[in-house]
């Protein structure tokens, strides 16, 4: 069985597979990559880096998109 780690996604704690990348997380959550931006520990991850960016235990991940606003 794969080892799990805890990460924070949009303020909620989740168990994910140890050593996953940002791209793995986006795939897992079935997010539309074009309308999603990612920050890990408040640092923006550029799209070109999703496949290489490894998530670590206790990382705080923000998955962001557009919302209604004036």
């Amino acid at each position: 069985m794969k080892k799990l780690m805890k990460i924070d996604i949009n303020g909620k704690e989740f168990d994910v597979s140890d050593g996953i990348t940002v791209q793995n997380l986006i795939d897992e959550l079935k997010l539309d990559i074009k309308s999603t931006a990612v920050a890990v520990n408040k640092t923006i991850v550029s799209k070109s880096g999703y496949r290489e960016f490894l998530l670590n235990e206790n990382d705080k991940v923000d998955l962001v998109t557009i919302a209604p606003g004036g």
């Binding site: 949009n10 959550l29 997010l31 962001v64 557009i66 919302a67």
Partner: peptide, 10 residues
């Protein structure tokens, strides 16, 4: 049209 940028609401 203006929009905000917010965390995804799952």
């Amino acid at each position: 049209i203006t929009v905000a940028v917010r965390r995804i609401d799952f």
